[in-house]
Amino acid sequence: MNPKKPLDPFFWLTVVCGSVVVAFILLPLIQMMAQPSLQDLKEAIQDPAVRRSIWLSIYTSGLAAFISFTIGTPFAYLLARRDFPGKKFVESIIDLPIMIPHPIVGIAILGLAGKNHWLGHLMHQVGIYVMGTVTGIVTVLTFVALPFYVNTVKAGFEAIPVRLEHVSRSLGASPAKTFLRVTFPLASRSMLVGIIMCCARAISEFGAVVIVAYHPMIAPVLIYERFTAYGLKYSQPVAVWLILVCLVLFLLLRIVTGQRGSKTAAGKKPS
């Protein structure tokens, strides 16, 4: 027989707080998702400007994630494996983009890339323009999203015992080969999480982008423009589409890489 346990007030407190948090996050989103009619959604997706902006958002965020992956992975490895003077300082620099208000990021990058700054002058001379270009958008997105990638992957590398790398070296593999054959595959899951975090962060960025590039419009800027030019009614359907597309993309990413992960676990036939 199971005697009824007395209800623990603390347990109920945690449940109540949990429900509040969930409701707090879901209510506004559900409200927004439920607002536009199917007709509104259809009209929105038939609008080439909307499709263009959503595609641009995905494309630039993906590029930002790819750049973070290429330059962030070796850097995260360095941070995870080496101790050097000033490491704490470097680590807090990585976190800066998370703390800086977003418009300031945009202003700072614009200021640097302008013709009146020597670097911007140089960039203009070789034909790199930041204001109002995809280059500019990707620069800003990488700036704000890179820390999410580096921090996630750094933790992933730290979780891999350094002894595995030692053994690999002792078996004849160079540091680069060791990284490719041992560390990289073992960290691939955390890299995937890092990429998803990085993409998610990039796709949600507005404040920094709108300062660097109003045109071409990424989806959040278009949503804002729609709101200011036409009002709530015409910005909501675009927002709904952006959320839906992102959900599907992230789901796909998880499924695709999840399958690959289970394949390795199943093992190959001995040769």
């Binding site: 030692h166 070296r169 002792s170 078996l171 004849g172 593999a173």
Partner: peptide, 11 residues
């Protein structure tokens, strides 16, 4: 470097 030493290790 370790990879050229020809020394095995078992932890």
């Amino acid at each position: 470097p370790p990879e050229q030493r020809g020394i095995g290790i078992v932890y």
